[in-house]
Design a protein around this nucleic acid. Structure first.
Lengths: 252, 252
DNA sequence: GCATGATATTGATCTAAAGCAATACCCTAG
DNA sequence: CTAGGGTATTGCTTTAGATCAATATCATGC
């Protein structure tokens, strides 16, 4: 399975985001590192979680990208989230009998596997840390809600722009996006299925955004050419990803 | 503020749902009741939470309905969730500096107000209960994800059908829907803003669903005429609302 | 070198749903 | 009884984006 050096290095993704939310004590950081010590690598295109199955662990993404999606009976696919390093998948598996969505690797991925009992054991040993993790997980709702606004009330152009900006912000928060650019294997089909659009239309929208010198998607890379212009156009307001209350979590 | 009898009676909504997920000890039930003892009533059309503000409490809905929504700069509105008894609002307020969405009362509402410090105090006194609450809250993601599928990949007809069925299932789970019918002050405008549709189109879709003897929305009441037919048509699969793993949460 | 499959691009229709506008139907308040 | 605001309904026109279809590009393996 995964090698220790790699895991340690990237543990940062999850811990870093948690630390943005609230300071972690040295011991907590150590526990967090320890939790992520059992890793598993997932091949490109393989499922981490398959709809309908039951799992006994949560998975913290250390490296690589994936998608969380559902296929409808007639073949339509909706991607409900892009899974990036630092994300946690399988949380609902603790509560709901069978998984409702599949999660699939877009690239080769490295994930830490944490059995539910180990998570639960934290009540006894590090309840504070567990609470911090839970509060943090609740933030995922904000990403989903923002996607709802995208799909419900934004035009295709705004949607794509907003989507690409969100990915930029999320990757920046884990140190994976150099200034205005990031690497991710997005195909037009993926964008279409994430945003409820058709492939040809995504193509046209991307062309438009490119012509307007706002953002370029090519190869496996997204490059934002005009951050301000794009943000304004997309009505993008990254506070749902970055603006934390800070500190208050420490209060008793 | 709220009277004790009413609060006690309806405490059930939240506790009942939690108990569906995992058994609660007598003491836990008592603590849960106690937590919900400070109540506040909110007038129709008033905000419980206003976008941009900061709050120091979570709110558990005891009675009444509301909406969680965002208004875009140009006036478009997207409702991201219908808030029903037993729901908790304001969770993100603990983590994010200023609220991202407003929550507004559709009817007069009664909510329990629980300051964050009181929630956090549970780590010390009842860590298990807190963990159960957190796991439960994580289920809200499933509702959001399902809405994403709605908005992204379902037709207007399917969307409305799915939406009305989801409300039925959610209200049933807290004992507020007699067999196939429930009372809720949904206007066509609200449905439109929840599902990313225009008002006239919602009107036509509702007429169609009525003519097909599937479901009727009138007055302040939704009546499902043909549950099987509607469910099949909407591809509705309520497991995301009801099918819990059971018991496993108790494991250490 | 060629065949194959995935992806991207472009064009030509088609359609679901938006937008606009008028009318109808409340209910409530004066 | 009447005026007025909110809501529902219906028709007509427009459009964003889907669908269908063809072609192009690129990487891969044989």
């Amino acid at each position: 399975m995964g090698g220790a050096p790699s895991a340690t290095a990237v543990t940062t993704a999850f811990a870093r985001r948690l630390a943005q939310l609230v300071p972690l004590s040295g011991e907590e950081a150590a526990v967090l590192g320890e939790l992520q010590s059992v890793t598993r690598s997932v091949q490109r295109h393989r499922d981490i979680i398959t709809e309908g199955r039951h799992y006994g662990s949560i998975f913290i993404v250390l490296e690589g990208n994936g998608i969380r999606y559902r296929i409808l009976h007639d073949g339509r696919r909706q991607i409900v989230n892009i899974v990036l390093p630092g994300d946690v998948v399988g949380v609902l598996g603790h509560v709901i009998e069978s998984s409702l969505y599949s999660t699939k690797a877009l690239t080769e991925m490295l994930v830490a596997t944490i059995p539910f009992p180990r998570v639960n054991a934290l009540y006894e040993t590090h309840p504070r840390l567990l609470a911090k993790i839970f509060w943090w997980l609740s933030c995922e709702t904000a990403i989903y809600a923002e996607h709802l606004v995208d799909l419900g009330r934004r035009t295709a152009l705004e949607r794509v722009a907003h989507f690409l900006l969100e990915l930029l912000a999320r990757l920046q928060s884990v140190g994976l996006a150099a200034d205005q650019s990031y690497k991710i294997p997005l195909t037009q089909e993926l964008i279409a299925d994430a945003l409820g659009l058709s492939i040809p239309h995504v193509n046209r929208v991307l062309r438009r955004l490119r012509e307007d010198q706002l953002v370029v998607v090519e190869d496996q890379r997204v490059t934002v050419k005009d951050l301000d212009g794009l943000s304004e156009f997309a009505d993008f307001e990254p506070s749902y990803l970055t603006r934390f209350a800070g500190g208050e979590l420490l209060a008793g």
